[in-house]
Design a protein around this nucleic acid. Sequence first.
DNA 1: TGGCTTGTGTACCGATCGGTAAAGTGTTAT
DNA 2: ATAACACTTTACCGATCGGTACACAAGCCA
Lengths: 186, 186
Amino acid sequence: MARLVAERADLLPVLGEVFREHGFEGASLSIIGARTGLGKGSLYHFFPGGKEEMAKAVLAEIDGWFQAHIFQPLHNEKDAARAIARTLDAVGDYFKSGRRVCLVGALALNESRDLFARQIRGYFAAWGEALAGALIRAGHDRKSAKVLAEETLAAIQGGLVMARAMNDPALFQRALVRIRTRLVAK
Amino acid sequence: MARLVAERADLLPVLGEVFREHGFEGASLSIIGARTGLGKGSLYHFFPGGKEEMAKAVLAEIDGWFQAHIFQPLHNEKDAARAIARTLDAVGDYFKSGRRVCLVGALALNESRDLFARQIRGYFAAWGEALAGALIRAGHDRKSAKVLAEETLAAIQGGLVMARAMNDPALFQRALVRIRTRLVAK
DNA sequence: TGGCTTGTGTACCGATCGGTAAAGTGTTAT
DNA sequence: ATAACACTTTACCGATCGGTACACAAGCCA
C-alpha cells in the first residue's frame, strides 16, 4: 500500500500545529487525521500510545530544536552577547513573530500539564540555565543573570499570550525588542 | 423542589475554576455538573446557551471584578503611584500568588479564542489603558506609559505561565516584585 | 516465487460528548 | 385554593470521543 508519509518525524510539525491550535483535549483524532492525511490505523501504527504519545513526541522534537538552535549556541558561542542576540532572532522566527503560540507554555496552563510536567519543566529549565550561563559570560553576576533569565522567559511567554489575546503579532515583536535592549545593556 | 443554589451568580466562581483547570474544551458538562452539584437540567436553566454562555458569563464576571478592583482604582485614585502599588497587590491576591491561572489568557491561546475574542481583547485593552493612564498621572509621558503598561501585562501573563510550567508559584511573586520596582521608579 | 515487514483502510467498540424534552416538585403570588 | 413560576430530575438523542482488531496492499529480501 502506498505510504503517505516518509517517516514518523515528518508528522511531528503537523501534530505540533494541531496541538497549538486546539490544545491537547481539543485536538481530536479526527482533526489529527484530517490534518495529517492519515487514518487511525496509520496514526496508531506510528504512535501506539495514542494522543499522549503524539504530544510527548512533539514536545521532544521541540526540545530538540531548541537544544540545537537556542540552548547549545547560548552555551558554546564565544561571544556570549552575540549568541544572545542571535538566539533572540531565532526565537522571533520560531514563533513566527508572534503569530504562533508556544505549545509548551500552552500545555502548562490547564490540567493536561500533569501529563507532561517533566517535559514542560525540563524545557524551561534548560532554556533558563542556558540563558543565565550566557549572561554570566557576558559580564553579569550569577544572581542577576538568573533573575534576568527568568524575567526574559516570562516576557517571551507573556508576549505570546498578549499577542494572541490582542490579535496583534507586533506586540510580541515589541516585547522581543525590549528584551534585547535589556539583555545587551549591562 | 429544593433549590441547590441561591442565584446564578453563585455559580460563576465555580465555573471559572473549572474552566481554568480544564480549559474550555476540556471542561465537560459532567465535570461542571459534579463541581457545581447541578444536573444538566439546572445548568441549562441558568445558561440556556450551554457551555459557551457559561464561559461568557464567567468572563463578564471577571471583567466586572477587575473593573471594580483594578481598573477603576487606577483611574480614580488621586495618588496614582499608590493606586498602582495597591492594584498590584490585588492582582497578586487574585491569582493566589501564582497558584491560579488567568482564564482570559488561557482562553486566548487556542482556537476557542475566536468564540471569546471580543471579551478577551476588551479585558486586556481596559487593563492596559487604565494602567497607562495611572502611569501618565504618575509622571510618565504618554508613550513610555503605554509601553510600560504593555510590558507589565505581558510580564504578569508570562509570570503566570512560567509559575505553572515550573510548578513554582514563587516565580510569579518574584515577577510581581520586579514589576512593582519598575513601575514606581521613573 | 514466497514469505515478512511496514504501513493503510475499514469496521467496530463502549464511553462520553453537548444538548433536548418533559414530567415533577416546591415556592410564591393572587 | 389555585395558578404561575422557578428549579430539579430523569430519560433520552445523535454525534463524536479515544482506542482496538484485523484484513489487506505494497516493497523488500530470501
